[in-house]
Each structure stands twice: as structure tokens, then as C-alpha cells.
Amino acid sequence: MTQAAPVTKKKPVSKTTPKPMQNLEITDHQATVGKCFADNAKMTMRNVNVFYDDKQAIHDVSIDIAKNEVIAMIGPSGCGKSTFLRSLNRMNDTVDICRVEGQICMDGEDLYSPKLDVVELRARVGMVFQKPNPFPKSIYENVAYGPKIHGLADTRVDLDEIVENSLRKASLWEEVKERLHQAGTGLSGGQQQRLCIARAIAVSPEVILMDEPCSALDPIATARIEELIEELSQNFTIAIVTHSMQQAARVSHRTAYFHLGRLIEVNPTEQVFTMPEHQLTEAYITGRFG
């Protein structure tokens, strides 16, 4: 595949409902349907293309993420939703062959501008991964890691307070307060994931990205994480990638449907799951592919 369209090219994004298409093919000029944009946008993405070497993983995605909303990104596997999520805090930088084009802004600041320090960005946009990845350190050290590297706590007392607060917010405190100095890897899968969430919120990020945070967990642990997301949405903006439509339906305010690297539809979650605008979305949520 050759170079994608230049970033400057303005693409019309329809806000009105188009006529349902008769087939499920995607053309190059596929436009996103639904409500992509928000008035109180925390993050704005415009014409984002992501490439792995020559292979294009994300085609021309434009979307806003509003303040304190929970936006779910769904779609069949390999649709690029995780890739897109990872480009929001520039985790894709760690992949040598990955290239991001287009504009991604937070509070009007271009995240890919050379002036921006990626360290600061990642402190502001936290991330929780698919598989719980606590560091091989104690529970306390796991949560204290962020505050320590960023110099957020001046005293030991401050640090203790941040750790306790974060663990409380991740509703893990009661379970681990007696064994803060035992290894984080000794916790159960669900607890590990909540530990990772506690670790992420310990630096008070503005946005939290969650990349299929429950895919490695059992239903009970999943339910607790979902409750947690609900609580966290009061303070944080959350973007969550999930392969579970029920989860998207339960936790998110808006849902974005990705298909083969394209953003097909963005709408309030209720609408997406009851009367999707686009035929592809409908096909997906009714289980015709997945």
C-alpha cells in the first residue's frame, strides 16, 4: 500500500444518517457515521492514520473523547482498536516500525509535536493493559512507582497517603492493606489488574486508557473492574477497548465501532446497541462476525 492521503486533506464527516448501504463492503471513502465530535472534548483526533511499515493499520480516523466520559471501542479482532488506543499515549513509539500520521490533541495540545515530552504525556494519559502486568515488586512499590519517578511525594507520609488513596480508589485497599509489602505478583488475576489500575491512578492522570482490561479475568473479577470503571468515571476520562459487547454496553457512555482499521460508527452506547446506524455495526452486534 502506498502513502496515505496527506494529513491536511480535510475529509467531510457526516453527522447525518446516511442511507444504509446494501452490502457490507468498505470503500476507501468510507465515512464515519454517528456523533464523532463532542463539545467538551478532552482529546481530539483528526484524520489519524497508523502504519506498521507499509501496512496501514488505521485509516483516517477522526473522533473526540469528551471530558469524564467512558468511551468504548469495539470491533472484530484485528480491527485496529488497540493500535488506535496505543497511539493516544504514544505507546506505539516503542514499536520501531510504527508510524502515526494525522492530529491527536489533548486540551488543544498536539501530542505528536516534537516539543511535547512523552514522559509528561504518559503521566497525564495512563494506561491499563490486557494482561495484568504488575512489576515484580511489592504491592506498595508497584503503586508508589509512578509517584516516585515523577517526584510527586515529598515525604514518606505523602507517599503512603498516595498509595493508600490509589488503592482505595481501585477498591483494593481493604484486601491488601495487611500485606502491602508482599509481592504484587502473588495476587489473584483480578486483584493484579486492580493493582495495575491503582498504579495508573496514583499519578492522577487525566485520561485512562484501558486495553481489554478484563480479557484475562474471570466473570467475578470482571464485574468488580466494571464497577470500578463506573466509579472512576467521576474523576477520569476513560477510553476502553473491549471485545465484549456486553461490557461496552454496561460501562460506556459512547461506543465507537472499528472495522478493518476504519472507524465506522460512533454513537451513545444505548443507540449503538439498540438501533445502530450502520449496517456493519449492526452485523457485528448481532453476531454475524466477530
Partner: peptide
């Protein structure tokens, strides 16, 4: 369970910004 108020986010950001040059060095 009592929730203590979280340290202000912008306060955090200032601290992070301040630490940046040292950490980048």
C-alpha cells in the same frame, strides 16, 4: 471507607513538569 481528597491534578502536573529536565538529563 473514607475517601481523602486527591492531591490536585494540576499540582501534580507542575511537579512532573519541574522534574522533566532533570529526568531527561
Amino acid at each position: 471507607m473514607t475517601k481523602k481528597p486527591m492531591t490536585d491534578s494540576s499540582n501534580h502536573l507542575d511537579k512532573i513538569k519541574k522534574s522533566l529536565s532533570r529526568r531527561n538529563r
